[in-house]
Amino acid sequence: MSQAQGEIYDLGYQHYDGPRGGRFQAVWSLWINGFRTILGLGRGARAKILPVLMSLVVIAPSAVFLVMSAIVPIAQPASHAEFYEAISLLLLLFSAIIAPELLIPDRRNGVTTLYLVRPLTSFDYVLARWSAFLGVVLVLTLIAQVLVLIANLLLAEMPWDYLQENWLDIPRFVLAGVVITVFVTTIPLAVAAFTERRAYAAAFVIAAFVITTPMSALLSMEWCQWSTTYTVRNGEVSEGDSVEECGRITGDYAKWFTLLDVGRAPMHLINLMFDDAEDFDLVDDGVDAEDEAAALVTELPLAVPIAWYAFLVLGPGCLLLWRYRSMKI
């Protein structure tokens, strides 16, 4: 080290007279740094496992569909909403694991202090982190949707006609992508803002989403039973018609309990966008749990799922900003 010091005196210190950017430059640099953190760039191979897995999982269903549509031409064009359905849980899972990386190490190592004494506010910091995360996840989901679109075009007999008829799907799936990615990035970041260990932040988010799914399903479970009316006339009991009575286990409350499955909040909105919910048949026995939930939600006033989504995004978002605004350094 004494050698290195020997050189210093010869070179001398140079002042910087070049251009200086303002807050935009600061946020941009933080954005790039967040982007690198998410993808594990500049780190070892182990840091890249999760981002690679996430990319694969998000794109895999669409890629498989695309390959199938190229090989097996009898397949039908598919709904874009279905592919969001397929990836929504996994997207949430990976977001929950990656989000803590963006906030917790900065706080643990004390780097947050260094950012906050630079020409940016805590709002800028949170915004840069969040938008980097959002950007990556959004690009991944949109790639998946573009693949679906290509597959649908391949399957259509007249691709040009298909596009003319369904061009509205493009702004829809872009908007749907925004809806789902805003959701899966905001909540885990908010939790990470209040947790000191990365593992617990991830576990808390995932546990909340995993546990509420079966709870919601049970509370809105459908019941059917045959009941027979008996009539007593002249001391004789005669059996009337058997009637199948159906209902929900919690009756009229059932439709509200579909909201309890918080992980599906963005899917309700996406289904609305694609008008898919109308296609579901309530009494059809073949429907799976997701379809049933989607159908049940339509019994609620339209504003309810929208307000619920807004609450689930804005609430944590405000908490996140408040936490960084009032942080003791």
Binding site: L50, L90, R198, A199, Y200, A203
Partner: peptide
């Protein structure tokens, strides 16, 4: 250090 994260992936996926 990411055992819990991988564990959750294992359990869910």
């Amino acid at each position: 250090p990411r055992a819990l994260a991988y564990g959750l992936v294992y359990v869910l996926v």
